Amino acid sequence: MADQHLSAPSPRDGTRPPWYARTATTVGRPAVLTATLIMSMPGEYKVARLAGWSDPWAYGMPFALSAYAGIAAVVAATRPKGARGRFSAQLGAGFAIVLALAAQVVAHLVQTGHMNGNQAWLIAITSMVPPAVLAHLLHLAATPTPVTTPSTSVDAPVVKRVETPVEQAPALPPRPKQAPQLPAEPAEEQPVRRIVYRDPRCAAIRPLYEHGTRPGTAAMRAALAMSGHGRVGDSTIRGTIRAEIEENEPHLALLPPALHGRTA
């Protein structure tokens, strides 16, 4: 009983935070996210206006930078280490943070009179932000995400094998020697018939009979197209190609027709 009492987790031993801490974390994160987005929007809007965008297009700059930072951060956090596109997403997340910081700093410097906003380099860099963000987001979208299959293996219990001594059977007298058997003469091999088709397109249709059914026109047309023979008329498929195959192997014509709604 004493061991069980000591091993029971206490509600205040740090294993689970108190309710007010959990509430502050749950409610505080979206509140802080909303507040920071609202506070960042005027500076990013101001930089867009300095670069020459007019209303309402200048309002797209805050949304572009915020969405870009969020998408790049999520991709960088969810892709496993060494996966393709993870390093690019990490660079994008860092680049988005630098853009957001630079937009705030430049906007406040210009607004307080410490910096002239009508500068060519500032306008050029700001103008490149939307196409650069779009190009990198398309790159992340085109990069395949690795799919991990959860392991379904179950640890089997270890069974210890106990070996018990086995009584030895009494020795039997040696058997009399038998005359060596002569090797049997090998059966005479039957020659394998090799079929040479007059129409080389028959080679693309013959494997369809391996399913135990007589292939239809649609299946034969698809097989010819996949083999690079192009479009072939239905009458040629049935009257020439299939007829030559079944002429060489008459038993194939007796197979039941293939189902799946294909024309015989």
Rank of each mutant, 00 (worst) to 15 (best):
T34M: 15
R84C: 02
S88Q: 09
A35R: 15
H229P: 03
L91N: 05
L254W: 12
G82D: 11
S127W: 02
S7P: 01
G212D: 08
A64S: 07
V106G: 03
L109G: 15
Q4M: 05
T240G: 02
P176L: 04
Q119I: 07
V98G: 09
A169V: 11
I195W: 07
G60I: 03
E188H: 09
L182C: 02
V98H: 05
S227H: 04
M61G: 01
H5Q: 07
E249M: 14
Q111F: 10
E189D: 08
P11V: 00
P11Y: 05
A169L: 14
L224C: 13
E167W: 02
P183S: 07
R29K: 12
W57L: 05
G60C: 03
T149M: 12
P170A: 14
A103T: 05
A64D: 03
T148D: 00
L138P: 02
M226F: 00
F95T: 11
Q178E: 11
R231C: 02
S66M: 09
I97R: 07
L37N: 15
L138T: 13
M61V: 02
E188F: 08
V232H: 11
H229S: 15
A135M: 13
R22D: 09
G230M: 06
G117M: 04
A258K: 10
A169K: 11
L33F: 13
A258H: 12
V110T: 14
T126C: 04
Y209K: 10
V32C: 01
T126D: 06
I97G: 12
V98F: 06
A243P: 03
R16T: 14
L172M: 12
L172R: 07
G85Q: 00
Q190Y: 04
L109I: 04
T149Y: 13
R84D: 04
P165Y: 05
G85R: 00
I38M: 13
T236N: 11
D234A: 09
E44W: 15
P215T: 04
S127Q: 09
A48P: 02
G60V: 01
T34R: 13
K160S: 09
R201C: 08
F87R: 08
A107N: 08
M128Y: 08
Y20C: 04
A253T: 13
A243I: 01
N248M: 07
